[in-house]
């Protein structure tokens, strides 16, 4: 089976998030950049499903600046077969991400598109579902377990209040949740091989997509800070505070 997996270059989740001095965006100078963790899970799932379903191809796609090549190479080092960078500098909203991916899908004709359920930078969580609608395909978001069999994907989803199982005819779009799998570490031979794997470069223009963002970020601010709390000596003091000061009991 053929898989198209998307990877986004994002700030490391362990790095402290700070606004630039002019508040025009989040400071990335000197900050480690990684593959969005949910996308890494999507890559791992594609690799496992490729093995389970008797081979095929895993194609990794990223939309971003030339720097995003590093994130594509990380996915290739995990075992993906080839990469596509759709080169775009500057902001691109979820709708245009989906439009670009729609064009890539039309070119590549994958059986399954695997994506992370959200990127940990803008936390929008929209592109996969928009893509599914543009393609007229079924979707399964927040996947916990994926079974590809009999021309369909049966997916257990992490829903509100329990686990929901849905089936989608192939081709379809699936987004990975945290517990879908534990991504492998790239091996040294994997990293060496990745350097030689094919990586094509495209642009939104070449794919026929004009990026005119319809979600425009007007500014950023720091969230309101909570005032520092107090330590209490023992259980009696805590219960007293909760009852008489916070009136929370």
């Amino acid at each position: 089976m053929k898989f198209l997996v998307t990877v986004k270059r994002v700030t490391d989740y362990e790095a402290k998030v700070k606004l630039k001095a002019d508040k025009s965006g989040v400071e990335t100078a000197g900050v480690n950049m990684i593959v969005n963790p949910f996308d890494e899970i999507a890559v791992e799932e594609a690799l496992r499903q490729k093995d389970k379903t008797g081979g095929g191809e895993v194609v990794v796609c990223s939309i971003g600046s030339a720097d995003a090549t590093a994130q594509i190479r990380s996915a290739l080092a995990m075992g993906a077969d080839r990469g596509i960078l759709v080169k775009h500098d500057g902001a691109i909203d979820p709708f245009h991400v989906a439009r670009v991916l729609q064009k890539v899908v039309e070119k590549e004709k994958p059986d399954v598109v695997l994506m992370g359920k959200q990127a940990i930078d803008d936390d929008s969580g929209q592109a996969a579902q928009i893509l599914a609608e543009l393609l007229g395909w079924g979707q399964a978001t927040s996947a916990n377990t994926v079974t590809l069999e009999g021309g369909k994907a049966t997916v257990v989803r992490e829903a509100d209040g329990g686990l929901e199982t849905v089936a989608c005819e192939l081709p379809c779009v699936i987004t990975a949740d945290l517990r879908l799998n534990e991504p492998r570490y790239a091996s040294l031979p994997g990293i060496m091989k990745a350097k030689k794997k094919p990586l094509d470069e495209l642009t939104p223009d070449a794919l026929g997509v004009k990026v005119e963002n319809r979600v425009v970020v007007k500014g950023f601010e720091e969230p309101a800070q909570k005032k520092a709390g107090q330590k209490v000596a023992d259980v009696a003091a805590l219960v007293d505070k909760l009852k008489n000061e916070a009136k929370a009991l």
Partner: peptide, 20 residues
């Protein structure tokens, strides 16, 4: 057409405008 939303796990609040 303008909304505030938490980004970067709530470490940043973005103001976004929807132009459609």
């Amino acid at each position: 057409k303008t909304f505030k939303r938490p980004m970067w796990a709530g470490n940043v609040i973005g103001t976004v405008e929807l132009t459609t």
